Simulated scan of single mutants.
Amino acid sequence: MGRLESTAALDAVARDYALVSLYMAGLDVASIARAVTVTPRIAAHRIGFHLLGVPDDGVDAANESTMVLEPDAAFDAVDEMYLNGMSVFEISEAIARPTSDVVWALLDAPARVVAVTRAVLQALRSDLEVLKGAAAAAK
């Protein structure tokens, strides 16, 4: 891994660690995005990737809309559906909304239904340490 690649990878993991940490601290998606200087949709997408396992769907930070999620009646039961065992993809189909909107709605649910697990934090910390070592070795 070259110096620029290792620095970019380190920056991306550090950003994701900050996003998840701020979510764990209780901030909403829009506040997290402002703190980390990304769009709210990118914040929701990256947190959703780590906490809900929603894969990268080609979200491009440079072209991503800065529009905020506009909840409507379709979102009223999203957290209940999730707590009843439905996946993000099943909920998306049930309410006919994109998975990114479902992720965002779940992350902003007042009941905080999406938990940050120790395994997620440990994996991000481990990635940070590995990439710090790679970046130092590339210098």
Rank of each mutant, 00 (worst) to 15 (best):
M81G: 03
P40H: 04
P71L: 03
A134M: 13
Y17D: 07
A123P: 00
G85D: 10
E64T: 14
M86D: 07
T7E: 15
S87C: 08
A74F: 04
V29C: 10
A119K: 06
L124R: 01
A105Q: 01
E5Q: 14
L69Q: 02
A61Q: 13
D11I: 09
D60Q: 13
G58R: 07
A30C: 12
S126N: 06
H50I: 07
S31H: 11
M24N: 12
Q122I: 00
A94D: 09
V68W: 10
Y17Q: 10
S87R: 08
M81N: 04
R125S: 09
A12F: 07
E70G: 06
A136C: 07
E129R: 13
D56F: 12
A14S: 13
V20A: 01
V59T: 13
V20M: 01
R41K: 14
D72M: 03
T7R: 15
P40S: 07
G2Y: 11
I95D: 05
D60L: 13
A44E: 02
L131Q: 08
A43T: 10
L19E: 04
M86K: 10
P98G: 00
A109V: 05
L106T: 02
L27Q: 05
G48R: 03
D60R: 14
E80M: 12
I95A: 04
A33K: 06
A134H: 12
L121N: 04
L27S: 07
R41H: 04
L107C: 05
S6K: 11
A73F: 08
D76L: 05
K139F: 08
I95L: 07
L69V: 04
A62Y: 09
N63Q: 14
